[in-house]
């Protein structure tokens, strides 16, 4: 692991090297005044069911990211409401969480296809709850 005094870029590089050689998907380090999180894409979670006459031998990889709630509140889909299967070509606000009268946007954090809307519109969500599953592949 990096030494305490190394530069952030150096630490991130070394964490990335660590991730690429281990089974770990995400590392988060918190110290007073500093937070670093480095992740790699999770493994294949979903693959289309192959039919008997499917000539392909390799399944198409879906690289699925979960977008999770980082606060407690009521989950609302933004309008126009995103749809399962919809392709997002760029970063977009998908929903917001309303807590204590404040709306906190939930963004797609880049392009991808919405595999699933994991929480119900208008329902309470807890910290860490999956809101959307996005295929980044």
């Amino acid at each position: 692991m990096p030494s305490q005094g190394s530069l952030p870029a150096d630490r991130i590089r070394r964490l990335a090297e660590f991730l690429s050689t281990s089974d770990v998907f995400r590392v988060r380090i918190e110290r007073p005044g500093e937070e670093i999180e480095v992740g790699r894409r999770p493994p294949l979670l979903y693959a289309p069911a192959g039919s008997a006459d499917d000539v392909r031998t390799e399944p198409v990889a879906l690289r699925v990211d979960a977008i999770k709630a980082d606060l407690v509140g009521i989950f609302h889909l933004s309008r126009p409401a995103p749809l399962e299967g919809e392709l997002l070509e760029e970063d977009r606000e998908l929903a917001f969480i309303e807590a204590l009268g404040i709306r906190t946007p939930v963004r797609s954090l880049g392009a991808g296809r919405i595999v699933a809307i994991a929480s119900q519109d208008g329902a309470p969500v807890e910290y860490g709850q999956s809101l959307f599953l996005l295929d980044r592949g």
Partner: peptide, 25 residues
């Protein structure tokens, strides 16, 4: 309701998430 990760300031001292939980429940 889960209100945050392990470190105390982000969970058991997370006043907005604790109050929000109380209100929505």
């Amino acid at each position: 309701f889960c209100v945050g990760p392990g470190p105390v300031p982000r969970s058991y001292l997370n006043i907005p998430n604790i109050i929000s939980t109380a209100l929505i429940t």
